[in-house]
């Protein structure tokens, strides 16, 4: 019974990490794609402003990445930290 409980904890942590990273990557992907496409349009319209547009775009991309980074941090916590903690909680609950 204990093995089953620990197995469920480990499996759910891994599943949660995968789902978290998968869904969390959608937003930044779409956002960065939008940003880059608009930047390309702007450069096409005004090629002389390439430098300024590119640096602003990279800055914006890095900020748009933030939500993806949040989900990455949570996924890393779920893989490396949560299993130990939850198993300890389970053990102390059983006594």
């Amino acid at each position: 019974m204990l093995e089953l409980a620990i197995g469920i904890i480990l499996g759910c942590c891994a599943l949660g990490a995968g789902i978290c990273m998968g869904i969390g990557a959608i937003g930044p992907g779409v956002g960065e794609g939008n940003a880059v496409s608009k930047a390309c349009e702007a450069i096409g319209r005004q090629p002389e402003s390439k430098g300024a547009v590119t640096s602003t775009m990279i800055m914006g991309c890095a900020i748009a990445e933030t939500t993806g980074i949040y989900s990455l941090v949570i996924a890393i916590l779920l893989i490396f930290v949560a299993p130990n903690m939850l198993v300890n909680v389970l053990m102390s609950a059983i006594g």
Binding site: A62, I63, E65, T66, I69, Y70, L72, V73, I76
Partner: peptide, 16 residues
């Protein structure tokens, strides 16, 4: 919080 997590997450993701 977002400033700290952005910087730390980017560097950590690279090493992972």
């Amino acid at each position: 919080v977002s400033m700290a997590f952005r910087h730390y997450g980017n560097v950590l993701s690279g090493s992972v």
